[in-house]
Simulated scan of single mutants.
Amino acid sequence: MKVNRMEAFSDGVLAIIITIMVLELKIPEGHNWSALVELGPKFLSYAVSFVYVGIYWNNHHHLLHMVRTMNGKLMWLNLLLLFCLSLVPFSTAWMGESSFAATPTALYGIVLLLAAISYKLLQNAILQQHASGSAIAGAMGGDVKGMISPILYLTAIGTAYLNAWVSCFFFVLVAAIWFVPDQRIERALRKRAE
Rank of each mutant, 00 (worst) to 15 (best):
M147W: 12
L122S: 04
L112K: 03
M75P: 00
A139T: 05
L122N: 08
G142T: 12
N124R: 14
Q123G: 06
T92C: 09
Q123N: 10
L114P: 02
W76H: 14
N124K: 13
A156K: 01
L80W: 02
W76F: 15
G158M: 05
L79I: 12
T105A: 04
P89M: 02
Y108W: 10
S99E: 11
I157T: 13
I110K: 02
A106L: 11
A156C: 08
L74W: 03
L113D: 06
I136F: 02
L82M: 14
E97S: 13
Y153D: 01
L107W: 09
A93Y: 08
V88G: 04
S98P: 02
I110D: 06
G141Y: 11
G158R: 04
L162M: 12
D143E: 10
A156W: 00
L81P: 02
W94T: 08
V144K: 13
V88F: 00
I148A: 06
W94Y: 08
T105F: 04
G133H: 13
D143N: 12
Q123L: 06
K120G: 07
L107T: 08
K145C: 02
L79N: 11
Y119N: 08
M95C: 14
L152G: 00
I157A: 13
I157S: 11
A139E: 04
K120C: 05
G133N: 15
Y161L: 06
L77Q: 15
F100Q: 08
S91V: 12
L112V: 03
A160I: 13
A139Y: 01
L127P: 04
Y108V: 01
V88I: 15
Y161S: 12
L113M: 13
K145Q: 06
F100P: 05
A139S: 03
A106K: 01
K145F: 01
L107K: 01
V144W: 15
L85C: 00
A160H: 10
V144A: 14
A116F: 00
Q128T: 09
S99V: 03
I157K: 11
K145M: 07
L74I: 15
A135N: 11
S98A: 11
L114V: 09
A156T: 01
G141K: 15
S132Q: 15
C84M: 09
I148S: 01
Y153M: 06
L154F: 06
Q123T: 02
G138S: 11
W94H: 08
M140T: 06
L79D: 03
T155W: 04
F90M: 13
L87A: 13
I110W: 04
G109F: 00
V111F: 12
L162V: 14
A125Q: 09
V88H: 01
Q123D: 10
I117R: 02
P104T: 03
S91C: 13
D143V: 07
T159L: 15
L114C: 10
S86C: 10
T159K: 09
I148N: 00
L154R: 00
N78F: 04
G146C: 05
F100M: 08
